[in-house]
């Protein structure tokens, strides 16, 4: 099974407190901690497990700047065999459609049985996987939390739907799947693992290598353009309890008592 996994480098929401920059047109990106998108890490783990059992290879690919090499290498340390970086100034400010069309160009250079994405990334779009599938005319299933390989013509996949129920589907290969968290337990990657793959070369490809018309991606090709970032003002918000820890706990216990929070 030849598997391609699309991964994105994103600001880590657990490690950062986000603030707007002074111009208000972006988040303040100085000193942000980045990591691989949480969902993509599950996708890579799944690919590694499938190849471990059924043979084949795992390739990780990312559209991003030079720094995305770091997440590619991290996922190679997990066990992905190859990494590819798709990078070009022309790719900057692409919308989901732009990202999907860049990925499509790379997919067509390979011979993949299975293409995995994360269910969603930092923009909460949940779009790239479904777009990529439609562009490639391949069948698609989103939010996959179970994959059973039972042949080389088709596989069985479970999609997580509302209420934690699972929708089972049979899907033909090749196909595109977006992976939901919880499908597996991604392995830990230590410094030693990263050091082991430090020397492996990661090819970098730009628009001309991929045969992409620069005007069809990036800002010019985007049908959705971000204008600004802002912190929403949603009414009053919570009543904040302040003071020393003891004082706060005392106030909190009063609230709990009055609202029936203490049995």
């Amino acid at each position: 099974m030849e598997i391609l996994v699309c991964i994105k480098r994103v600001p880590d929401t657990a490690e950062n407190e986000f603030e707007l920059n002074s111009a208000g047109n972006d988040i303040d990106r100085d000193d942000l901690v980045y990591s691989v998108n949480e969902w993509d890490n599950y996708a890579v783990e799944e690919a590694i497990q499938i190849v471990g059992e059924h043979g084949g290879s795992v390739t990780v690919v990312s559209v991003g700047d030079d720094e995305s090499e770091e997440v590619l290498r991290r996922e190679m340390a997990m066990g992905a065999d190859n990494g590819i970086l798709l990078s070009d100034d022309a790719f900057e400010d692409s919308d989901s459609r732009g990202i999907a069309s860049i990925l499509k160009a790379e997919v067509e250079k390979g011979n993949y049985d299975l293409i995995l994405t994360g269910a969603q990334a930092d923009d909460g779009a949940a779009e790239v996987g479904g777009m990529l599938a439609a562009m490639l005319d391949l069948p698609y299933a989103s939010l996959v939390n179970q994959i059973d390989i039972d042949g080389d013509k088709h596989i069985k996949v479970g999609r997580e739907i509302e209420g934690g129920n699972k929708e089972m589907n049979e899907i033909e290969l090749p196909c595109v799947l977006s992976i939901q968290t919880g499908i597996n337990e991604p392995r830990y990657v230590g410094i030693r693992g990263i050091r082991k793959v430090a020397q492996i070369e990661i090819p970098v490809k730009g628009a001309s290598d991929l045969g992409i018309d620069a005007g069809s991606v990036g800002k010019d090709g985007a049908k959705m353009k971000r204008i600004d970032y802002f912190v929403p003002d949603l009414g009053e918000g919570a009543e904040m309890l302040e003071g020393s820890t003891d004082e706060i706990i005392e106030k909190l216990i009063e609230k709990l008592k009055s609202k029936g929070g203490l049995a």
């Binding site: 989901s96 459609r97 999907a100 269910a119 969603q120 909460g124 779009a125 949940a126 779009e127 790239v128 996987g129 479904g130 777009m131 599938a133 439609a134 562009m135 698609y140 299933a141 989103s142 939010l143 999609r159 997580e160 739907i161 509302e162 977006s178 049908k223 959705m224």
Partner: peptide, 23 residues
């Protein structure tokens, strides 16, 4: 934008060659 919409919307926008916005 639920588990069905996430399955449908992105691909549909490609087939129609129209804009897409989720969530």
């Amino acid at each position: 934008h639920n588990t069905f919409g996430m399955d449908l919307v992105p691909g549909l926008s490609i087939k129609f060659d129209s804009a897409c916005a989720s969530d």
